[in-house]
Simulated scan of single mutants.
Amino acid sequence: MKRTIRTLTLTAAMLALSVPPLFAQVAQPTAEDVVAFVGKMQAHVTEVGTDKAFADFSDLKGPWVKGELYGFCHSLEGINVAHGGNPALIGKNVLGFKDPDGVLVNVAVVDKAKTEGKGWVEYKWPNPTTRKVVTKKVYVEKVADKFVCGSGYYVQ
């Protein structure tokens, strides 16, 4: 019961801290857009290092937040280190976040990076534009052998 309340509270906090007007201004990204975006994230980490790149990815007014298309990064232990949709998550362990079907979304994200190095993860999540729970497809890549970074899109 406590876990369900915590999950619901965290989900509500994430929705409250999202930036709906910004999300509404940008067309929905495609799978190709997401893969290209994560590739650019990977290149940025290589170019400037993790500390600077993670700060850049989390800047809500910076070039790495393009409406619904934004990046996130977690350590392989599940600690959020960058989030362009909700910087309040930085420093928090996000492994306990569940979708409405009980899928531990960030466990799936970290496992994908650990086992395959990169790939797609699918789960249900509130769309910040419509506030409806829909399928979200997230593409992730292992970064600097210690992190997983990704981005995604909502299936309409």
Rank of each mutant, 00 (worst) to 15 (best):
M1V: 01
R3A: 14
T4E: 07
T7F: 01
T7Q: 01
T9L: 12
T9M: 13
A16D: 09
L17P: 00
S18C: 14
S18T: 08
P20D: 06
Q25A: 15
V26R: 12
V26S: 15
V26T: 15
A27V: 15
Q28E: 13
T30C: 04
T30W: 00
T30M: 05
E32I: 04
V34F: 00
A36Y: 01
V38H: 02
V38S: 04
K40G: 03
V48H: 11
G49Q: 05
T50C: 11
D51P: 02
D51M: 03
K52H: 08
F54C: 11
A55L: 03
D56E: 13
S58Y: 03
S58D: 14
K61S: 15
W64K: 08
K66H: 10
L69F: 08
Y70N: 00
C73Y: 05
C73V: 05
H74T: 04
H74M: 10
L76N: 04
G78K: 08
G84A: 09
G84S: 11
G85M: 13
G85L: 11
G85P: 14
A88R: 09
L89E: 12
I90V: 15
K92T: 15
N93E: 15
L95K: 08
G96C: 04
K98E: 07
D101Q: 13
L104M: 14
L104N: 12
V105R: 03
N106I: 00
V107Y: 02
T115C: 08
G117R: 12
K118G: 07
G119P: 02
G119I: 06
G119K: 06
G119V: 03
V121D: 11
V121Y: 11
Y123A: 06
W125S: 01
W125P: 09
T129K: 10
T129V: 14
R131Y: 11
K132V: 09
V133C: 04
V134Q: 10
T135I: 14
T135W: 10
K136E: 10
Y139S: 04
E141A: 07
K142F: 03
A144I: 09
F147M: 02
V148S: 02
V148E: 04
C149G: 07
Y154L: 09
Y154E: 12
